[in-house]
Write a protein that binds this DNA or RNA. Structure first.
Lengths: 146, 146
DNA sequence: GTAGTTGCAAAGTGTTTGCAGGCAG
DNA sequence: CTGCCTGCAAACACTTTGCAACTAC
């Protein structure tokens, strides 16, 4: 899983370079793991995943690399749970469902869902990004919705 | 600041009872501190604030009480920073500006700002809440916005 | 009186740091 | 060869927990 073929590797190297990131072994493994997975992952999930077969990347490197990828705009950080930051390879503007029970994140295409009436930003500030999180919960019962 | 007059106290007692919360001394102090402040506060800010003049409430009690107030719908939790959950006494639907530099939270009246095109929730789930966070950053310079 | 609440300190998470050794360019 | 990167373990910050003492009703 952490080993990937030459074509993938070449492509990932290219991708990292395009974003101004020196492609080291660990970064390739991390970037590849991140990009090849559909779902959103947290740092620890990625750590576990990447070291599944054999230790390959340390905890510090996971965090360093994720922060680097965010800084270089290769992935997006989504904060939905104070205990866990999720990383999202979908750089298209989009929003999320967050299942508070399972911690699952599901993309919402922002073509569907949009914000109207964004007010002027406070003076002297610039926009960093807008995030919509729709928190959902597994219905405990068909009838009792509160 | 942590001492408050009889009228405020009576009102806070009433408020807690209305929400099904037994009004203990600590809860009164915490609820009052929370409600009397304009800005959003984090647990630690509240802890510091409440114990400003003399120790009155322990750390565990702050967290217990905040979680209780959230559960009983007296305050709203806003997650914008993985390191800090903010608590918001404004229960009207509204959204937030979040200054990533200063960690300041500013309310946005949701009469202004609304979401259109909310998709159907995934099957078997119910809505917990929707949160829009507009991240802003102090402009480093008038010209160089990236 | 009794159930529920509090305080304390210790444990638990997720994340960051400091520094010696290692690797990319 | 040189500077950036990595691993490790320890440090960190916020939050929760376990249990004895206390308090609201």
């Amino acid at each position: 899983m952490t080993l990937f073929d030459a074509a993938d590797r070449t492509e990932t190297v290219k991708l990292l370079r395009q974003h101004g990131i020196i492609p080291t072994h660990q970064r390739l493994v991390i970037a590849h793991a991140l990009l090849s997975r559909r779902q959103h992952v947290s740092a620890e999930q990625l750590l576990t995943h990447v070291n599944q077969t054999h230790a390959e990347v340390s905890k510090a490197t996971i965090y360093n690399t994720l922060n680097l990828l965010v800084e270089k705009n290769m992935v997006r950080e989504v904060i939905v749970d104070p205990e866990r930051v999720f990383y999202c390879t979908n750089m298209e503007p989009h929003n999320h469902f967050y299942d508070v029970g399972t911690s699952a994140l599901i993309d919402i295409d922002s073509k569907l869902m949009q914000v109207t009436g964004m007010p002027d930003l406070p003076a002297g500030t610039v926009l960093e990004g807008t995030e919509i999180v729709v928190r959902i919960r597994r219905a405990p019962d068909a009838g009792t919705i509160q």
